[in-house]
Each structure stands twice: as C-alpha cells, then as structure tokens.
C-alpha cells in the first residue's frame, strides 16, 4: 500500500479551507499549520500566469526527516505515511532543518508536528480532512498500489509534477498542471 495525494492546480482557488479544516480536525494551535497555500505568479501584465498550490508534508519515500531523527520519533507507518510520535520527540529540530519542503513546525508543547495525511481517519477507512472539505474537489487521495484508486487514475490521465524532485526525496504529493 502506498498512500499519495494529487492536487489539481487548475481547480484550486487557494481558499485555504484545507488549512482551517486541518486545524480544527487535528487541533493545530492557532498560528501554526500543517498545510498551507502557495501562490506563484509569473509574467508581466497582462501576460500573467498564476499557480496556486495547497502544500503539506510530501510523505517522501526517501524521507530525510526520518533518516536524521535521533530518537526514532519520526518514522514511517503502513502506507508510507511519515509520522511523529510526540512523546518520543525531543524537539531537537533536525527534521525541520532536513525537510526541503519546510513542512514541519515546532509545536508549542515541545515536539515537532506536521501533516499525517489524517492517519487517524485513514485507519477508519476515511480520507484526510483537507480532501474531504475542499470545495473545488481539487484533491485526490488514495493508494498508488491500487490502479483503480482515484489518485492512480488521475495521475495516469493528467500531466503532473512534484516539488523539488532534485532533492531525491521521492515525494508522494503530486501537483496536476
């Protein structure tokens, strides 16, 4: 099993609903977030292009954060989801430094926190809160090992990219372009 997410930049309007839904679902303290929205603008008026991306932990196959964690707090669970065990985490921040996506933050309670693909929902057969809430339905989620899953289907059909492929992390969040 290999969980992955595909996000359609052609449909995303950058409303940040994914951010609030994550905050309320996962009790993320105000002022912090596990996912966020990036807008990149290119060109000169009136030949302008805009790409909007909802970003989060990429749950990399080759996760630098897991490799550098001195206590084993950062680990990979079934389905390739990168997790942090709060009471094993000493808050050293090595993982924060190693992540090329800046996907981790120091929780005020003293541990490092980040997106879990809402693993507590996955184990009950659900989908991440951000995927469930998105008004434009621009997020697709599922098992890449299942060719029939919506994420496999959409990646087979559409052009996509990943962020910072040169980092060699083999990220599992895909952006449809």
């Amino acid at each position: 099993m290999r969980y992955a997410m595909a996000i359609d930049t052609k449909k995303c309007v950058g409303c940040s609903d994914c951010v609030v839904a994550c905050q309320t679902e996962n009790n993320v303290p105000i002022g912090y977030c596990r996912d966020w929205v990036v807008e990149s603008v290119a060109g000169t008026y009136p030949l302008v292009e805009l790409e909007i991306r909802s970003e989060r932990c990429n749950h990399c196959d080759n996760a630098p954060c897991v490799r550098c964690c001195p206590t084993g707090a950062s680990h990979i669970v079934e389905g390739g989801v990168v997790m942090v065990t709060p009471n094993k985490c000493i808050g050293c921040g090595a993982c924060i430094q190693s992540c090329p996506y800046d996907a981790r933050y120091s929780h005020p309670d003293g541990y490092v926190d980040k997106c879990t693909f809402c693993y507590h929902r996955l184990v009950k057969g659900g989908r991440p809160a951000c995927v469930e809430v998105c008004p434009t339905r621009c997020m697709y989620f599922g098992d890449l090992d299942q060719p029939q899953s919506e994420v496999s289907q959409i990646l087979a059909r559409r052009k996509w990219k990943v962020l910072a492929p040169e980092a060699g992390t083999r990220p599992q969040v895909y952006f449809l372009v």
């Binding site: 996962n26 009790n27 993320v28 303290p29 942090v84 709060p86 009471n87 309670d109 926190d113 507590h120």
Partner: peptide, 16 residues
C-alpha cells in the same frame, strides 16, 4: 479548544 494541552495522541484518542 485550541489552546488546550492535548497532544496528538489525545486528539487521536478523542477522534477514535
């Protein structure tokens, strides 16, 4: 609601 001390484990337990 958001300034609580609940850690992820507690959240998950609550959700479960």
């Amino acid at each position: 609601w958001f300034r609580g001390t609940s850690r992820w484990a507690e959240t998950a337990a609550k959700a479960a």
